[in-house]
Amino acid sequence: MIFITNFFTRRGTALLATWRIWRDTLRFAARAILIAATPAAYNSATRTVVMKQIYFTVVQILPGFMLFAALLSYVLIQIVVTTAASYGLSEYALEVSMRLLVLEILPLITALFVALRSSSAINTEIALMKINGELLALESAGVDTMRLEFMPRVIGGMISVLVLTAFTSVIALVLAYLAVYGWQSWSLPDFSRIMGNVFQNTVLLGIFLKSLAFGLAVTIIPVAEGMATPRMLFMAPISVLRGMVRLFFLIMLIEVASLALKYI
């Protein structure tokens, strides 16, 4: 009996701790979104910091990521086109490759790429700022850390995922056209008709919402995790590790939820 009581006490404590972390993250997300949507939150300094954040999370990585996405898209399109042809299903190759790439793989790859590049950096930065007492120093000096430190990172991450997904999707469309029809333009009406069938308004809204959710996840989780770091230096890598695991879990959860909504 004591064994069972202890087991449930320990599990219950762990469960409550996990619940508290997610509750604080959701609270922070709600606050960040609310402030980001308030025009009064933007003064000259906030605008400068947001612009810089967008530059570092979007513009700086654009060429390298586009090249990678183009290569990945080309290989996957070729696999789909060749496989479809071998089964005599060439007429479905374009639609299948676009559903696979633009609706599923590219948004997910973009979110994972931004998570690896920016989220880990954001988590480390915020955790160290917390440990070194810099967040406290800013607040003591009357600086609103949400407006100057956290919100620009959240906006930068969201715009980063949305813009990179949009750009890579356009590249995938162009590559798919070239792979199926070759270097000519007279098949554009056919291509447009098929794309019109694939990308209906509800589907486009779905991609937008999924990318938005990815964008929020890749910034909210690392910021919230960094803020929750205890003020001990050895906790910085632990905080980043925890943040990245939670982020990976959430990204996969969003992806599975979007698949379930679409296909089940």
Partner: peptide
């Protein structure tokens, strides 16, 4: 007060009047 790592030294200094008195960049 900590410097912002993704801003230049000039931008870090300019950020103070921008924040305190909403001065143009």
């Amino acid at each position: 007060m900590p410097l912002r790592a993704n801003l230049s030294a000039l931008d870090n200094i300019a950020l103070i009047p921008q924040y305190r008195s909403n001065q143009k960049y």
